[in-house]
Design a protein around this nucleic acid. Structure first.
Length: 279
DNA sequence: ATGGTGGATTATCCA
């Protein structure tokens, strides 16, 4: 099963590109972020013609996530537990920045995976209220991930429960090698110690970055700002990840970042990140 | 020091 995660920066603007990536890379399941649309605004015919089931979740024009699978969607989970709300008083909402689904119980793949498409809040500035919101959001993710592993003891269906995958745009570069120039990020979000500690806590809970071992580091990034020809100058950041539980990690046979796609005209500022998993 | 680009929505906001 080939699983991709892609911050697509508008699913409506980018549907032709998504279909081309799916066809060229033979993607079975894709987690999308920044779909920038409400589910009812989407024309999904290109995906359904290819045998995909789609689940989308979005509240406004800039966040919003989706999952598309052609190995089946058995069950949809619309929100992670205990995500913090953003906003004041009556306007406070739990933003649509996570959608989960259990996918992949087919003849080819003997065990299903609980897969989450995540858009971790950006944080904006270190002194902005969105920054502690981001840290709280990551802590809620860690807590859920830890509970998932703890609940899958040997007594009860351990293999099934522990096949968990958190895929998406984490808006954190976990190490200095994951940004093109640390000096350019002094005093900025995405590289601060608390953000990196929040990612490390998810790793310490038992989740593994499935791509790191398969990449040529440094300089293998997933995001390059549209501004200033950053892709041509190889000035990017690695902020898009698939974090797998031990069962998923053991079943991973390869990974790549689709730099070909990022080089196309009219594509997202993020590249698709792709892993092969054989459970 | 500012603005550089792009999307959705419509002159700003967000990334």
């Amino acid at each position: 099963m080939r699983i991709a995660t892609w911050n697509i920066n508008s699913l409506r603007a980018r549907m032709p590109r998504l279909l081309e990536v799916i066809d060229r890379r033979k993607i079975d399941v894709v987690a999308l972020q920044e779909i920038k649309a409400k589910p009812e605004q989407l024309d999904l015919s290109g995906l359904t013609e290819r045998g995909f089931e789609v689940a989308a979740h979005g509240l406004n024009q800039w966040n919003g996530v989706a999952l598309a699978s052609r190995v089946g969607i058995r069950e949809i989970r619309r929100e992670l537990p205990s995500l913090p709300a953003w906003g004041e008083g009556e306007d406070a909402v739990v933003e649509a920045r996570a959608i989960g689904a259990v996918v992949g119980e087919t003849a080819r793949d003997s065990r299903p995976i609980e897969l989450w498409s995540l858009y971790v809040p950006n944080g904006r500035e270190l002194d902005h209220p969105h920054y502690p919101y981001k840290l709280g959001w990551l802590e809620a993710l860690r807590s859920y991930g830890e509970a998932r592993l703890a609940s899958s003891g040997p007594g009860e269906d351990a293999g099934k429960c522990s096949a968990t995958l958190f895929a998406g745009d984490f808006n954190v570069a976990p190490t200095d090698a994951d940004v093109w120039d640390m000096a350019a990020f002094e005093g900025k979000t995405h590289v601060s110690a608390p953000e990196r500690e929040a990612i490390a806590a998810i790793e310490n809970a038992g989740y593994v970055d499935l791509t790191r071992d398969w990449l040529d580091a440094p300089g293998t990034y997933t995001y390059w700002d549209y501004k200033g020809l950053k892709f041509a100058k190889k000035q990017g950041m690695r902020i898009d990840f698939l974090f797998g539980s031990p069962a998923v990690r053991a079943a991973t046979t390869g990974a790549m970042i689709d730099l070909e796609e990022r080089a196309q005209e009219s594509t997202s500022d993020h590249a698709p990140v792709i892993v092969d998993i054989h459970l």
